[in-house]
Simulated assay, not measured.
Amino acid sequence: MSIELDLPGTPDTPRVVVAMSGGVDSSVVAALVSEAGYETIGITLQLYDHSQAVGQPGTCCAGSDIHDARRVADRLGIPHYVLDYESAFRGSVIDDFADSYARGETPIPCVRCNQTVKFRDLLQVARDLGADALATGHYVRRLDGAAGPELHRAVDPARDQSYFLFATTQEQLGFLRFPLGDMEKSAVREHAARLGLGVANKPDSQDICFVPSGDYASLVKKLRPETAAPGEIVDLSGKILGRHSGLVHYTVGQRRGIEIGGQPEPLYVVRLEPESGRLVVGPRLALGVSSCDLSDINWLGGKIPDGGVAVTAKIRSMARPAPARFDGRAVTFETPEFGVAPGQAAVLYDGNRVLGGGWIKTTESALNAMAA
């Protein structure tokens, strides 16, 4: 297979930096870029104390993954560098993750990592190396539009990662390339096998890379002990129903673990109040949200007309796109949306095109909106 990265105005042999995590996706990208004749440089970021993750499969950028990336680079005959970004990753991603939990939010560290360490810091490293592009193993498409490069969903809907890349700016899109956006995962593994890459059958990452055990609460309690303080569980009217063992154990929409019996219907976490230490619970109907306000908005969709623009909005990575309207600050849903949590992202689409998105700061209850 030959890939074309569309690098106009570059030298006869363009230089491409490939972000190599040690997994099959980024390894295949490096192999395909090299096979296509580009001057290829692999870079792996050491993001945390990888010695703690050795022997724990299903994580990215751990010690074994750095070793896998190096082996692939050696097989391809390309330069490979490991850069220590542990300090930057801790400040931009891990501390932000813990702070978000402490504020009663539901964080998405993978977006922060792409937004900061990968598409800010690593992109600058690639430029410093004189590269013409930075290629990654993300399943997303970069297409040329009338006003410049656009971000689109991947061809394989089961692998699409566009939700996690909403913060990618127009300038960054001009430098980034995503060779896997037009492929299905099975085809990527076939290429890995064809190219003789040792990671061809390596399992995909499942957990947040710096919490390979999946026990997020233990990490947050260690970094922000106040999140483990016990407090009251109250209903929507403020009536005390019981006690909880720390807000760190709960997220909006959660049903399991509340352990309040004798109620006429199941209870869900409606919101967390870190100032008072209270956990507010209610029936599923109380989770309905009519609108949400966004912060740190990244907009790729051109001028927003008066009255807003019709979009489909995803408020979780696995959520179905919901019809909505965006006015440049707030997203208003056509029908109540459930599971909308501060700290998550609302990513806005026009069909397969990513128009942009932002971080959910506040929500408006559909019950309140109906009562108004």
Rank of each mutant, 00 (worst) to 15 (best):
Y139S: 04
A88P: 01
I240M: 14
V82I: 13
K185A: 09
Q52F: 15
N298H: 11
V72P: 04
A193F: 10
A19G: 15
T59F: 00
R177G: 04
K185S: 03
F178W: 12
E4R: 07
A69C: 07
G351S: 04
A102Q: 04
D144L: 12
L247E: 11
E265D: 12
L151V: 06
K239E: 13
A324I: 04
V309D: 07
L300W: 03
F97K: 05
P305L: 07
E265F: 06
T363P: 03
D207G: 04
A200E: 15
G55M: 02
C292P: 00
V16Y: 07
G130K: 01
Y38R: 00
H67T: 15
Q56K: 14
S162E: 04
S213L: 10
S186G: 09
V270G: 03
D96C: 11
M183W: 04
G137I: 08
E226P: 02
G130F: 00
P321E: 03
L45R: 06
F326T: 13
M370F: 10
S2P: 13
R256G: 10
A30E: 05
R243W: 09
T251E: 07
D296G: 06
L300F: 03
G198S: 13
L195A: 13
F178K: 00
S87A: 15
Y48P: 04
I78G: 07
G277L: 08
K314Q: 15
G174A: 03
V220S: 13
T335S: 14
L45M: 15
S213V: 02
P14V: 09
A319R: 02
C61Y: 15
K118Y: 10
P342R: 07
L219W: 00
A19M: 12
Q254W: 09
F338V: 15
F97H: 05
A286T: 03
D84G: 06
I78P: 06
I94S: 04
S92A: 14
G282Y: 02
M370P: 00
E334L: 09
P57M: 02
V117F: 01
S100D: 13
R316W: 01
R189N: 02
R103C: 14
H249R: 10
N352W: 08
I297S: 05
I66E: 12
K118I: 13
R255E: 14
F333D: 06
A371W: 07
G358D: 08
H152A: 08
G91N: 14
V93R: 03
A286W: 05
I43T: 08
V347H: 01
V155I: 11
Y85V: 13
D121K: 02
D182K: 02
